[in-house]
C-alpha cells in the first residue's frame, strides 16, 4: 500500500478548546487586585511598607523555588502563586516588622502552608495565614501592631477596643477607616484599595462572590446583634467591617480555592462561619483582630461543609 498521507497529526483528549483561564491568569488578576491597596500602603507607611512587601514576596518565590529543587519537583514559581502568597502575607504585617520576621514568616507560609502538602491545591489552609499564625504566636511583641507602631501618629482601633473598650477608640469615623487612617496589617487596612481590588475580582468572575458575601454578612450580622444588645460596649457593624483584615480576609484570604469549600451552600456557610468567628474572637478572644484565626478555623471546617452536597443527576 502506498503511503497515502505522510502527515503526522496531534492526538489529544477533549476538550479541544479551553475557556482560557489558568492558574497564572488567576494569580495575575489577584496581584493586580492587590495593587491599589499596596499603593495606599506605601502612601501611608512610606518606604517601610515597600520594604516589607518586596522582601516577603521575594522570599516566598525563592522558598518555593528551593522547595521544588529539594523535593525534586518541576518548577512552579511561574504560576505566580508564591508571589501572591508572599504579598498577601506582607499585607498582614505591621510596616515596622523586622526583616527576619518578614523572611521567616514568608518562608513558613510557603514551606509549611503550601509545599509540605504537595503541589498547589493540596494545602488545607490558606497559606499566608499559616505563616502569620506561626509568627503571631512565636513573636507576639514584634507582631503586635499597637506596640510596633509607636513612631506613627495613627492608632490601632481594634487594639484600643480590646484593651480599653469601645468608648476609648479614637478613630471611629467611616471615612478615616475606609481610607486607611488606622494601624493594622500594612495592606489589609487600606480598606478602600482592598475593596476596589476585591470588587474587581468578583465582577470579573475571577473569584466567586459567595464567600465574600457570606463572610461580610457573618461579620455584619454578629456585630449588629451585639450592638443592638448593648450599643455602649459593642461598636456598630460598620466599625467591624472597616477595621483590621475583614475586607482583605473576605476577598483575598477566605476565597483561597483549596482551603475553602467548592459548592454554593457550603461556601456560604464557610463565609458566614468565618465572619461570625471573627466577631467572636474580637469580642471574647485574646486577639484584637480575629480574622486570620477565624479563617484558619473555618478552613478546618471545610471537609465537613463539603459533605453538604446535592443528589447527583438521576440518582435515586
Amino acid at each position: 500500500m502506498k503511503p497515502l498521507n505522510p502527515l503526522v497529526l496531534t492526538v489529544s483528549v477533549p476538550p479541544h478548546k479551553h475557556y482560557g483561564s489558568s492558574v497564572r491568569g488567576l494569580m495575575t488578576a489577584i496581584l493586580m487586585a492587590m495593587v491599589p491597596a499596596a499603593a495606599m500602603a506605601v502612601n501611608t507607611f512610606g518606604v517601610d511598607a515597600l520594604r516589607v512587601m518586596a522582601l516577603s514576596a521575594g522570599v516566598a518565590v525563592l522558598t518555593e523555588a528551593a522547595c521544588n529543587r529539594l523535593m525534586d519537583r518541576s518548577q512552579s514559581v511561574g504560576d505566580l502563586h508564591a508571589l501572591t502568597v508572599g504579598l498577601a502575607f506582607a499585607f498582614l504585617l505591621p510596616a515596622s516588622a523586622p526583616w527576619w520576621l518578614v523572611a521567616f514568616g514568608s518562608a513558613a507560609s510557603i514551606g509549611v502552608g503550601k509545599m509540605m502538602f504537595g503541589p498547589l491545591g493540596g494545602s488545607p489552609f490558606c497559606a499566608p495565614l499559616v505563616g502569620w499564625a506561626i509568627c503571631r504566636v512565636s513573636w507576639p511583641g514584634q507582631m503586635d501592631l499597637d506596640a510596633s507602631m509607636l513612631t506613627m501618629n495613627l492608632t490601632y482601633p481594634l487594639g484600643q477596643l480590646k484593651a480599653f473598650g469601645w468608648t476609648s477608640v479614637q478613630i471611629q469615623d467611616t471615612k478615616s477607616l475606609l481610607f486607611g487612617r488606622q494601624l493594622g496589617g500594612l495592606g489589609a487596612v487600606q480598606v478602600a484599595g482592598v475593596l476596589i481590588g476585591g470588587l474587581y475580582l468578583v465582577i470579573k468572575h475571577h473569584v466567586s462572590s459567595i464567600i465574600p458575601v457570606g463572610f461580610l454578612a457573618g461579620v455584619a450580622t454578629a456585630a449588629w446583634l451585639l450592638h443592638l444588645i448593648n450599643p455602649v460596649v459593642y461598636p456598630p457593624a460598620m466599625f467591624h467591617l472597616l477595621t483590621g483584615s475583614v475586607m482583605f480576609g473576605a476577598f483575598f484570604l477566605a476565597t483561597d480555592g483549596p482551603s475553602s469549600p467548592n459548592r454554593q451552600i457550603p461556601m456560604l456557610l464557610f463565609g458566614l462561619l468565618a465572619g461570625v468567628m471573627t466577631i467572636v474572637i474580637r469580642v471574647w478572644g485574646a486577639y484584637p483582630d480575629g480574622v486570620p484565626f477565624a479563617i484558619l478555623l473555618a478552613n478546618l471546617f471545610t471537609p465537613v461543609l463539603e459533605r453538604i452536597r446535592p443528589r447527583p443527576f438521576g440518582a435515586r
Binding site: 503541589p119 493540596g122 480555592g257 483549596p258 469549600p261 467548592n262 459548592r263
Partner: peptide, 15 residues
Amino acid sequence: ACVGCGECVRRCPAR
C-alpha cells in the same frame, strides 16, 4: 494535580 479551585464542581450539570 487538581488545584482545588472548585470551578468544575460549580459547573457540573450532573451535580
